[in-house]
């Protein structure tokens, strides 16, 4: 037993606080918007130039001029504001975005994040991820705890090219929740049906406390 993609997204949604401006990455982080707790009002930023991202449009109402950072058609809300890319990253770099929830390939025990490149294999680019991890108030990474081969992705040191160094605050995986603290990672909670022993066994990084 462990959390599936939707349960991970639902757990990540518990990180949101009322009034926050938040950026959600592509993949599981996008699903977080389906689980925003009642009574919590957050404004979603899309780094291609929008605050106040709405849901997907109804069929037939797609607008080529209105997309999110994953290039998906979306809609606007009453509070929506549009701006250019330099302004968008000025608010990211200026620390105005309270939190980013991003996907990851590897996270280290010191909070290093790798999520943009596999040398020789996957050359897509970092997009806005390096700016986000450097600029936002809090970085939460949502990813599978291990690779398809069972290797831990929560490591002493990342093996892949970094997106940022010492930038991650919290990791939410299919096996549980860990915080980056002095000396290593601290277990915050285990996923449903996962024991602390199982979580430790799947983690290469140092676990403290």
């Amino acid at each position: 037993m462990a959390w599936d993609r939707n349960q991970m997204a639902a757990r990540a949604a518990q990180e949101l606080q009322d009034g926050w401006y938040v950026n959600l990455g592509i993949g599981i982080p996008t699903l977080v918007s389906n689980y925003i707790p009642k009574g919590v009002n957050v404004t979603l930023q899309s780094e291609n130039g929008m605050l106040g991202m709405g849901p997907f449009p109804y069929e037939g109402e797609e607008d080529a001029d209105l997309i999110n950072a994953g290039k998906q058609t979306i809609t606007e809300l009453p509070q929506t504001a549009y701006f250019d890319s330099a302004t968008s990253f000025a608010m990211i770099r200026g620390g105005k975005i309270a939190m980013a929830i991003l996907g990851g390939m590897e996270v280290s025990e010191t909070g290093d994040l790798a999520n943009w490149m596999v040398p020789g294999k996957l050359v897509k680019g970092m997009g806005g991820a390096m700016d986000l991890v450097a600029g936002v108030g809090r970085v939460v990474v949502v990813m599978d705890h291990t690779s398809k081969h069972g290797d831990s992705k929560v490591l002493k040191e990342c093996t892949l090219p970094l997106t940022g160094r010492s930038v991650v605050d919290r990791i939410i995986t299919n096996l549980g929740v860990l915080d980056v603290v002095e000396g290593g990672l601290k277990i915050v909670e285990c996923a449903d049906g996962v024991t602390e022993a199982e979580l430790r066994a799947a983690t290469e990084a140092t676990i403290v406390g």
Partner: peptide, 28 residues
């Protein structure tokens, strides 16, 4: 990085030859 690219364009247009940023520190 996307924000660096946007800011490089903005800076060029504003006559600013260079700027310092945290983005990318400790990476390639």
């Amino acid at each position: 990085p996307q924000g660096t690219l946007a800011e490089r364009m903005r800076a060029g247009g504003a006559g600013i030859p260079g700027f310092y940023t945290k983005t990318g520190v400790g990476t390639v």
